[in-house]
Write a protein that binds this DNA or RNA. Sequence first.
DNA 1: GCGATAACTGAAAACGTTTTCAACGACTTT
DNA 2: AAAGTCGTTGAAAACGTTTTCAGTTATCGC
Lengths: 337, 337
Amino acid sequence: MSLSGKAAGIKDVALAAGVSVATVSRVLGNGPVSEALRKRVEDAVRATGYRPNLSARRLRSQHSQTIGLVVSDIRNPFFTAVSRAVEDAAYRAGMRVILCNSDENPEREELYLRLMQEERITGLIFAPTRATLDRLDGLDLDFPVVLIDRNAPATRHDAVVLDNPRAAAMLVEHLHAQGYRRIAGLFGNTSTTGQERHEGYRAAMTARGLVPAARFLAPHADAAEEAVVDWMAGSDRPEAFIVSNSLFLMGVVKAARRLKLPIPDGLAVAGFDNEPWTELVGPGLTVIEQPVQDIGQSAMTLLFERLEAPDRPSRRLVLGGTCIVRGSTAARMAEAG
Amino acid sequence: MSLSGKAAGIKDVALAAGVSVATVSRVLGNGPVSEALRKRVEDAVRATGYRPNLSARRLRSQHSQTIGLVVSDIRNPFFTAVSRAVEDAAYRAGMRVILCNSDENPEREELYLRLMQEERITGLIFAPTRATLDRLDGLDLDFPVVLIDRNAPATRHDAVVLDNPRAAAMLVEHLHAQGYRRIAGLFGNTSTTGQERHEGYRAAMTARGLVPAARFLAPHADAAEEAVVDWMAGSDRPEAFIVSNSLFLMGVVKAARRLKLPIPDGLAVAGFDNEPWTELVGPGLTVIEQPVQDIGQSAMTLLFERLEAPDRPSRRLVLGGTCIVRGSTAARMAEAG
DNA sequence: GCGATAACTGAAAACGTTTTCAACGACTTT
DNA sequence: AAAGTCGTTGAAAACGTTTTCAGTTATCGC
C-alpha cells in the first residue's frame, strides 16, 4: 500500500483527502461531517493504509480504554475462564485488558497496582490476597475496582463473588444425605474464599450435630496430598473430604490412590470448580460449579455501571453455585460394626 | 499524599523540586543528573505521589514497550502455560503484554493484527490458523513476529515449535513396542500442528509396516468422542488411538467409558500435553509433554534477538517433547484368535 | 430579502512526556 | 591567561492525536 518509508499519520490522510486533520479525526470518531467529505476521507484512509496511533489518542482524549485484571495465576482454571470472559466483554466494548499474575504475593500486587495507575486504566478487576484486601479501602486509586472471587464483608468497592458459605454447606448437606458423618475439610489459607467456605462448612456441620475438622493449606496439590495421607494415618480417619479448590481435589485423588483407598468407598470427596476432567477421574468427582462466565461478565457490567454512576453505593453481587453430583460421593455403604 | 484534586504531573514534580521538567525526566530515565538534584527530584516524586503517564511516554519516545500475544484460546491449557511464561518474561523486561483470543477465526486474527498495529507493539508472538499463516508472509507488519506452536515450512518469521513429527512418531514407536498394531489417529484440522503430527504418525506407521488410519476433526472433545464411537462401531476397530491434543484425549476417554471399553485393554490411548489431570484419569494417560515454559521464554528471547538484529536470517527453534508413559498404553494382552 | 440559526469546517491549542539544542560553569590544557 | 572540554542544566520543540474555538456557508422564519 504505502510506498513512503514511514507509516501514514493523520496528516497524510488529511493531505490525501484535501481536508484538515480535524475533519479526518471527526470522521474516525464519527463526529459531524458531511457525507461528501466523509467519503473522501474514508477513501484516503484506505489509500494511505492509515492506522491511528492509540497512544496519541489516549493521551489527548484522556481515555485509556483499558481495564486492568489482576489475578493470582492465570493457570488456575477458574481464573483462566474468568479472564476469558472479561476479555471478551472488554473487546466487545472496545477496550483492552492488561492481565497481571500476582502469585498471591502482596508485593507484586502493589507493583501491579502502581502499573495500573501509570497506565491510567479505566477500571480494575481484582482478586486480591487477604493482605491487600485489608489495605485496599485505604489506598486512593483513581479508578474504580471490582473485586472478584474474594471480598471483605464490608468494603467500599463493588464485588462479584460466589455464595461460598452456601456452596460449602451444599456439599456438607449432600454428603450428609448420602450417609457420611465424619467429614473433614481442606481450605486454602491465602484467600478469603477459603475462609468463607470453611465458615459454611463449619456451620453446616454443627447444624447437623457433626463435628467439623478442618485444615488450612497453601494452594498446592502436594499440600493436600500430604495432609490427607497424614490425616488418614491418624486415629480419626474421615470418611469424606470437602476441599476448597481443584488443586486440593487432585491432591486428594492422588492420596487416595497412594493409600489404595477406593473412591468413594474408602474415601469420598467433593470440591469446587467443575473442570472438564473432574468428570473423568475415578467415578467422577462431585463438585460445585461456579458460573465463571457469568462472574467475568458481571464484573465488567458492574464496572461499567460504576463508571456511569461513581457515587452510587457499592454493590455486592453474590452468585449461586451448582452442585454437580458424581460418583465420588455415592451413598455410603453400611459399615460393619 | 496529594491533596490537590488532580493527579500530579511531571510539571508539579519539577516545581516542587525547583528544577526543570527536563531534569525530572532525566532522573526518571536515569540520564545524567548531579547527585544533589537527583536526590531533590526523588524526594519531590515521593512527596507529590507522581506516577508517569505511560501513554505520553510511549507517544513521545516511540517505544510502546508492549508485545502482542495472539493465541486461539487462553483456556487451552497449552496456551495458558505459554502465556504465563511469555508474560513473566515480558514484565521482567519491563514490557507489557496484550493478549488476544482468536478462537481459530481468521477474521478475528485480522482484526487483532490491525489492533496490534494501532498499539504500535514492539513485537508479536502468534499462534496463527493455517489460513492466516499462508497470508502472513505477504502482510507488511511493522513489527517482528515470532510464531509459536504452528509454523509454515518456509516463512520469513522466526518460530519456536515442538518437533511434532518426532513426537507423534515417539507415540507410535511406544505403542508398537507395547504390542499394539491397529493404531488410529485423530488430528486437529485447524492448525499446522495437527498436520505435522499426522505426518509423523503416518511416516512412523508405514515405516513399521502398519497401515495408518487418521481422521481430522474440529478441536472439540465432543468431535473426538463421536469419532471414536463411530469408528469402534465399524469393522476395522483400532486397538489404540493417538490423538493430537488434550481435548481429543478427553473425548476418547469419554467414548471408552460410553462403550464400556476398559483402558487400555479395550482401547489404548496416547496423546499430547501433560496436564496435571492426565495422571489421574483411569490408569493414567500416556502423553507427550511439551516444554511449555521453555516455549514461552524462547519465543520472547527470539523476539528480543530479532529486535536487536532485524536483518539476521530467520530462525526456527525446534524443541523436543518428552514421552510420559502411563497406564493407558500398558502392554497389549494377547488376544484370543 | 434579511437576520437568526444550524450544520459543517479548519487553525491552533492541548494532552504529558522525551529529546534536542544551546548555554553555562568549572576544569584542563597549552 | 586564553581556549577547549566536559558535565550539567533549562527552554522549547516534538510525538500524533482530539478538542476548542471561531469562522463560513446554507437554511429557515418572517
